[in-house]
Write a protein that binds this DNA or RNA. Structure first.
Lengths: 247, 247
DNA sequence: CTTGCGCCTGACGTTACGTCAGAGTTTAGG
DNA sequence: CCTAAACTCTGACGTAACGTCAGGCGCAAG
């Protein structure tokens, strides 16, 4: 007639699972984890089976699921688990990339500050570089969903920086050519144009969806936020168009 | 007599900076960014100087500072910026490691699920592995602050997994020795004990603070949460103590 | 004068609990 | 049997950084 499975009350149970009593209350109210019994006076009583469930919850939380998601996952007993995991992995990787870029930004800032220019002005330059990375965000509205995904997967901090350097270098050369009055039909000009389109292809990765998004993005220049400036002048653009033989 | 600096009202200004009007309201109320003027009817009017400040705010937010932190940073005009940046970098790296472990956990889970065992039970094993990583968290209360930092810096997912494998391997061998009734004073036993202390040193990295924390941790076994089980049996522990010549 | 767009100020919603506040319960000790 | 310590309960408000209404003006064009 006596319970043969031991039962624990709140504090004990919480400690065993590495959470707080308040957390248990919370999960109880959410219907995420109901104790297997209450005493007549309203005390919660938990047992081993509850511990298993709580550990599942903790684990899923660790993976980054919200309590809501966990609830539905547990209800359907892991039927769509694979799908959910894939989705979650992508989200986390996205966040990781973001943090990676943030760290890079901080390191650059630290470099500038330490190297003798500890003033705010020096820091402002970095702001611009960082914002260029940030701009990845708002440009997203021009890309289809799958294009955004593909872009995000390739956009590691290193790749971004490399791309920025390549572009900066090429643009500098083109500007020089423009200043020198270089003929857009010359050999050299065509070489520059070739490199230009090479960089564009490198960005799109040959993906048609990304190309389409990029085209939409550039067609809508009038709506760009002001702080995002086309990294090259109109003259440069005209020169490249001419050299590439486009109207 | 007329303003020569253009001023923008909310929507325009927000778009230029890549934020929403609501965000401007929010910053205004927080005193983080007051518009440089209001019209008689209460409309906010922003100017270029405001844009600069807003961009600073956005940048600092990108780096992960809270609005409160940003406010004080801007007030003291970047005097403690270097310190703040260093702190922030550490915090972010911590988060990155966490996310890295989460991704590893997910990948393992996906592997188990995809490899023919799409049931919940298989998933439970992974829970334990993950929780071992999670336990890094609660053990922290035994370590000094600087020890925690040092540990965190070295605790990449790869290192953790390698360590777990090494320990599992060694413990298996010791268990076999115990079963075979191996003499704790034999050559083989001493070799096992040597490997044991080698792994311990590998964990502490020779750091005295970490050693101290570890000692405290093991001295307090009675207060461990139940789900964290010593990975080896009492017999194994006794055997190793004997082989190492300790009481 | 009305229409439509833009602006304003509250005020509540979100996430996963932390932190009191006020009140009852259980238990060991005197 | 009484009491103090230790534990438990249920609200209810706080947090971070805005999003999202809702209700009410302001302003330029037709």
């Amino acid at each position: 007639m006596k319970d043969q499975e031991a039962s624990y009350q709140a504090q004990q149970f919480a400690t065993r699972a590495g959470v707080t009593v308040r957390t248990l209350h919370h999960y109880d109210r959410l219907g995420l984890l109901k104790p297997s019994a209450y005493t007549g006076t309203g005390y919660r009583l938990y047992r081993e089976s509850d511990l298993a469930r709580l550990q599942q919850i903790v684990t899923l939380k660790y993976i980054g699921f919200s309590l809501q998601e966990i609830k539905t996952l547990l209800v359907q007993n892991g039927r769509d688990l694979a799908t959910a995991l894939r989705r979650q992995r992508k989200i986390i990787n996205q966040k990781r990339r973001h943090l990676g870029m943030a760290v890079q930004a901080i390191e650059k800032a630290e470099l500038v500050i330490s190297s003798g220019a500890p003033d705010w002005e020096a820091f402002k330059k970095i702001i611009e570089v960082i914002n260029m990375q940030n701009d990845m965000e708002w440009t997203r509205k021009y890309y289809s969903e799958s294009a955004t995904e593909k872009l995000a997967e390739r956009a590691t901090p290193e790749v971004i920086e490399q791309g920025q350097n390549d572009w900066a270098q090429l643009i500098k050369e083109v500007e020089a050519a423009v200043r020198d009055g270089e003929d857009p039909t010359s050999e050299k000009s065509r070489s520059l144009a070739a490199r230009w389109s090479h960089l564009v292809r490198q960005f799109t990765g040959g993906d048609p969806e990304i190309s389409a998004g990029l085209k939409k993005l550039y067609a809508d220049q009038s709506n760009w936020p002001a702080h995002f400036q086309k990294p090259y002048s109109d003259e440069v653009e005209a020169f490249i168009c001419a050299a590439a033989g486009k109207k």
